[in-house]
Design a protein around this nucleic acid. Structure first.
Lengths: 156, 156
DNA sequence: GTTCTTGCAAACCCTTTGCACGTCT
DNA sequence: AGACGTGCAAAGGGTTTGCAAGAAC
């Protein structure tokens, strides 16, 4: 297995523990969804995952995908993002721990970055307010340096 | 006028400049929407604003509200947030500059806070990536200290 | 007068739900 | 066997759009 891939077995174990603890059932579909997410190893929407799985020959319905994505988010295996667009985006929490996103407001380009200082701020803020910190999502809105797509002054 | 209210005239001027620059028209509806937003002076969804305006006797359609919210967001008068729920939320950028949100993943409670350090991180990160920083949105996900609503271990 | 904006309702997209069937325990 | 999960299609909620009437320029 490629060294850069997520540790699928560890994720399955974590998922299995969660399902047992919450008394959900171990179904083939749920583990298959996790498998394919690990293969993708990038941001994806529910529908992109649905299309990907059908391309790969899995027959898993949208209902099951949405349901499983919800479970995987609840047990912190997945991180759910709401970028500007319509649909939610997900990615493995283990993929790039605590990274954040910079979004160009002109062209929609998304750049990932890591700023370690955020982790400390997150923990300090949460504790000061009496909360137990879990995770965070920082989105920086900026203008892209590409003159062709971003330095125009049009109506859109 | 109450001293804590946003400076509506300045906002209207800013909006007017934007409309002229982008060659949009000055319509009564657009300024009326901005007026009511300033009155509200809090987070709101498009539909909450629609209901509020109809309560106040304005006859502005949902289509116009969505369209105007989009324009106000484009010219940075409004900040558009996507919290976990279904609908987008908006607030005046001038209301509480650069504040952020902590969200309890168990009960959905949202707490506003200000962490000045973020501003510097935002600017540094954007510049390092070659972007011009505009604004940011930091959401901290945490668990609420309220034992009744949050310390349960149920399936939801 | 021409072009843009509004209002209404229908369309649209993402997501959730009801129900019958299949699977897990 | 019983309860839960799945698949399908239909419903749901938020948002966008097409079109005719009205307002801005």
């Amino acid at each position: 297995m490629p060294s850069s891939s997520p540790d699928v077995e560890a994720l399955k174990q974590q998922f299995s523990d969660f399902l047992k603890r919450k008394q959900y059932r171990n179904t083939q579909e749920r583990y298959k969804v996790l498998d394919r997410i690990a293969e993708l190893d990038r941001h994806f929407s529910a529908d992109e995952l649905y299309v990907y799985m059908n391309t790969k020959g899995d027959s898993v319905s949208r209902a099951t995908i949405y349901s499983t994505l919800d479970l995987l988010t609840k047990c912190s295996i997945l991180m759910k993002h709401r970028f500007q667009g319509d649909s939610a985006h997900f990615e493995l929490s283990s993929r790039m721990p605590d990274h954040d996103h910079l979004i160009c407001v002109e062209c929609g380009r998304i750049v990932e970055f890591r700023a370690e200082e955020i982790d400390g701020i997150r923990d300090t803020v949460a504790k000061n307010l009496g909360f137990k910190p879990l995770t965070h999502s920082l989105q920086i809105f900026a203008v892209c340096p590409d003159p062709v797509t971003c330095e125009h002054n049009g109506r859109d």
